[in-house]
Design a protein around this nucleic acid. Structure first.
Lengths: 223, 223
DNA sequence: GCAAAAGTGTTAGGTATACACCCATGC
DNA sequence: GCATGGGTGTATACCTAACACTTTTGC
């Protein structure tokens, strides 16, 4: 593909990944230390990187996450494009942010120098405009939770209904009645009892469920 | 702001505007003829233009719409960023698309050489990846209609409940019972009777309503 | 008085909410 | 046998959906 004429090219294009997961029953997000010679040196930021000439932003996102932190998300979708002239103090960078989710086992076993999952409630101030990026990502996640089956990507493939309820309660910041929550979820017919039970718990073992459809499905809404 | 280093700058950055309005009781969208020396010459496309070094994409969108077609939208929000390597056959252009709405009086009085509002049902095949852009925009509009007060930007400031219902029915492609629709809308308490009536109609004049809140408001959803 | 669109109420079925106790397991 | 979390049902209030006729106006 030919490059655009020189005078039209003033900005670098990047992708940034807001990777959520579930750790200790709380929402967590992946941050990495900023290591460049800039005003942001030493701060934390979401992992990101520059787009290559031969790839689109979806491809760049997958490559960057793989190379920089060794992760392949269970779910990712484009979130928002951040383009403020001074959002990176070094030079003009337009960044396409992504909302990504990884299952809790992935987060639990994650080890990578300079990167870590941090509880959203305990995040420090982030570099660049990444605080704003987090808010946009969190709001999108909340929205999709209510009208899609996105919760599955924050759970193991087999999970208990209590775990599912905890995801909803934590992400939305609301509490639900256990009986009503179960009735609603089961009525939606999006999960199925696997017939298996929890093992190694010191109380009555819970039934394990799985999502019927392994990919994102939209739930019907009324006007 | 400093430019990014030369080797990182291969793409031009553009904005494109999907401008919906309401014409003859149907959803319409603004297209303009493509006039450059490219494979797309002679086709229609959404109005767009390159981002300047001194502006962000929101600012570019407003400027481009003003300069190229003389419109200021009643509503606009960032939609999606299109980045396929070959989306523009001439050279690499990454485009940030916007969803924009203008009120029907604006569309009705619109005249600009080479640009026009076309009923969505009668759109020809568009240049670049703009067919896909239209689908994304339409879907977003449908979604927001059900959980926000976005319908106001497709109506005059004062409108009848039948006009409001027509917006919902046309955009969502569904029909609603008149009595139930009114009950629901009035229960939401998002519109108010102005006390004024339609004039110059040859049947019983309808009451004119206005939205209580002149800006976009989200409606509550349950899990 | 006729054509056109505005405006209005009731009923029945289904959904949401509120609420408390027994069950299975490990130790 | 006790502590822990799992699992379940009912009654009420509310909301949704289906449905048809009268009113106001211009001509």
């Amino acid at each position: 593909m030919r490059r655009a004429p020189e005078k039209l090219r003033f900005a670098a294009m990047a992708v940034d990944a807001v990777v959520f997961s579930f750790v200790d029953g709380e929402l967590a997000v992946l941050t990495a230390g900023v290591n460049n010679e800039s005003a942001y040196h030493g701060m934390d930021a979401f992992p990101g990187g520059l787009i290559k000439e031969t790839e689109n932003t979806d491809q760049a996102l997958v490559r960057v996450l793989k190379d920089k932190v060794g992760l392949t998300p269970a779910f990712s979708e484009q979130l928002y494009t951040f383009s403020a002239v001074n959002r990176d103090k070094r030079n003009r960078v337009v960044s396409v942010a992504y909302l990504c989710l990884v299952r809790p086992d992935t987060a639990a076993s994650f080890t990578r120098a300079g990167a870590q999952f941090v509880l959203v409630s305990k995040l420090p101030k982030l570099a660049y405009d990444h605080d704003e990026m987090l808010l946009v990502a969190h709001k999108r996640l909340q929205g999709k939770l209510t009208y899609s089956t996105i919760a599955q990507f924050l759970l193991p493939h087999h999970f208990t209904l209590t775990e599912l309820q905890t995801v909803y309660e934590t992400v939305l910041g609301t509490e639900f009645d256990k009986r009503n929550f179960r009735k609603k979820i089961l009525a939606l017919d999006i999960v199925r009892d696997t017939g298996r039970l929890q093992e190694g718990v010191k109380n009555r073992p819970a039934a394990l469920y799985k999502f019927v459809d392994q990919k994102l499905t939209e739930l019907p809404l009324q006007v």
